[in-house]
Amino acid sequence: MKPNIKIGFNNGVIGAVTPLETGCFGFVASAVSVVDGFQLGTAYQLKSMKDVADLKITDTIDNHRLFKALSEFYSEAGDGSEVWIYGMAKTLIVSDWFTPVDGLAPVENLLNSAKGKIRGLFTVNDSSVAPVITAGMDADVLIAAGKAQTLFENYTAKKYAPFFTILEGYSFSGEKVALTDLDTVNYNSVGIVIGDTETTSGVTSSKGAAIGVIAGRLAKYPAVVNAGKVNNGALKASQLFIGDAVVENYDTEALYDKGFITFTSHQGRAGYFVMDDPLACAKDDDYHYLTHRRTINEAFRFSYDSLLDFLLDEVPTNADGTLIATYAKTVESAVERKIATNMGGVLSRDPENPNDTGVKCFVDPTQNIVTNSKMEVAVKIRPFGYNRWIDVLLGFELNN
């Protein structure tokens, strides 16, 4: 059952747009080089559609999908939002982008160029290779998802810069029943989107998804905010389709039940909304939702940054080689302070308790640092909950 509210209330719309570090994303796209402008295999940093124009990326047949994604991103996120782009030859398929060549996957060139700033990768597929439809969409989508998950794990371990990846449910056949249930795979840093601002049989014959719309909405708000939060207002996109059907005429709830990110409309609200933000993994996975993945990724970055100051540090010890308790407390305080200071409202905390920061760090002082040269640290953060389902009991009351 899709997230819904059985009784609607009128809410205001939050209109402010503030560029956020957590909203620094990367677009990897099938594209064609432009003379004296945009080139394949080169990372570019953009802040507005003016930067897009400066690279001579226009709405041509060659680069329509890249231009569309960027224009929809800035329409949603607003100028000033940082995005990086990287073009791939149209002879490649998306899984190739995540496949190491001489030890380096092509998309790593983009991640490395941004020096760890990129929090999310979004793919824009326009390959000249004909898709092979399996289980309701291009078979390469799930192959790419597995490789993107592997890259996430390897890159995070190597560079300490975790990210998520959003793929298109490319060439979706329209047969919702045929789709793989994404709860059965284990890609908890990867999401797959079905739904676009263009139809399958239109002039541009879209096989992809509204990646720019999703990315723009995510960039507009902090990591803790669900892309489908109704109180933030409808998406800027005036039309959204599943194949040739407008969203409201397609059973998008069935797509959601299969674990896909998709779109919806709400009775009493004009426009379209992201339905929710599931990732391609089991529902009981701690990171089944993108909000939780983005939050833990930020905590990862700040844990690393704070603990780096203690690497190869001289550690005072007791006679038996265990940590001096005050040193353990110093480490704990440093980690908690770094995360609490930098993540602000991203962590859930008790507003009535000034000592509750939403983060706890524990260093066991009984560890023998002399023998092992290893200090084990446990860091826990408290996530927000989300009103995915609201049940209301409504009736009359008579006072006799």
Rank of each mutant, 00 (worst) to 15 (best):
G169H: 02
F163S: 10
D140N: 07
A161N: 14
Q45A: 06
A16H: 06
T165M: 02
T99P: 02
V101F: 08
G395R: 13
G80N: 02
V335P: 11
S171A: 15
D257A: 06
I166T: 10
E21W: 00
G120Q: 10
L393N: 15
G103K: 00
F362M: 12
F38N: 00
D286I: 13
G120A: 08
A114W: 09
F310N: 07
T165L: 04
N112G: 00
L121I: 11
P351Y: 01
E153M: 10
A340G: 02
Y44R: 07
S206P: 01
K90W: 03
I166F: 08
N387A: 15
S127V: 09
I214E: 03
A334E: 12
G233C: 06
T150D: 06
G191S: 06
F302P: 00
N112C: 02
I118H: 01
T252Q: 06
G385V: 12
P19Y: 00
D284F: 14
V83Y: 08
D313Q: 15
E376K: 12
D96M: 14
G208T: 00
P100Q: 05
Y86E: 08
V94W: 14
N399D: 14
E21I: 02
D126G: 01
A340Q: 04
V141K: 08
P354N: 14
D51A: 09
T252A: 10
L121R: 01
G228F: 03
G41P: 11
A43K: 05
V124F: 08
P106M: 09
N249C: 00
A219L: 13
L393Y: 11
Q39M: 03
V185P: 05
